[in-house]
């Protein structure tokens, strides 16, 4: 068998199972967008700098542009499309809406996925911690202030929940 040929992979994305055949060189970001039609994961720089493509790979935020789709075989992936709940926006999304945490929205999916994982780990962060956690995501519009406020508001809100 020629190993440059397509490989069958199985992944669970936002709780749904998919089976696809992919070329080894296909990036996870392109797989999500092009093969699964989940274009909420954005692609900015494709070398790990901007953070727009951040997704959860088995619960951990990673750059989808720096993982090959074949490597995700057997994994569970979380993207921005999976954040919404039955009763509406995820509290972090709601906080971004409320606090004007986005303008053009290009950076937003990556920031949400980064911050969902961050707030799980640090439920009650200081402003400095929020800013450090944000350092791997570039935003060209907001100047970050509103993003920090949104994350802090979400933390305050989420703090009350079990």
């Amino acid at each position: 068998m020629d190993a440059t040929q397509a490989v069958a992979i199985r992944v669970t994305v936002n709780g749904e199972r998919y089976e696809r055949s992919v070329e080894p060189r296909l990036l996870l970001s392109d797989f999500l967008r092009q093969e699964l039609g989940l274009s909420g994961t954005h692609v900015g720089c494709e070398h790990g700098v901007c953070g727009a493509c951040t997704v959860l790979l088995d619960g951990q935020p990673v750059r989808a542009c720096l993982v090959f789709a074949v490597q995700a075989d057997g994994s569970s992936i979380g993207t921005v499309e999976g954040l919404e709940r039955d009763d509406g926006l995820h509290p972090l999304q709601a906080a971004f809406k409320e606090a004007h945490g986005l303008q053009c929205g290009f950076c937003t999916p990556g920031i949400l996925m980064t911050m969902v994982a961050f707030l799980d780990e640090v439920p009650d962060p200081t402003e400095l911690e929020v800013r450090e956690a944000l350092s791997g995501n570039l935003c060209r519009c907001t100047g970050y202030q509103k993003i920090v406020e949104a994350v802090e508001a979400a933390a305050a809100g989420l703090g009350g929940k079990p």
């Binding site: 790990g48 953070g51 980064t114 956690a133 350092s135 791997g136």
Partner: peptide
């Protein structure tokens, strides 16, 4: 780098 990069 950043946490997302150190995770991998």
């Amino acid at each position: 780098a950043h946490p997302q990069i150190r995770n991998r």
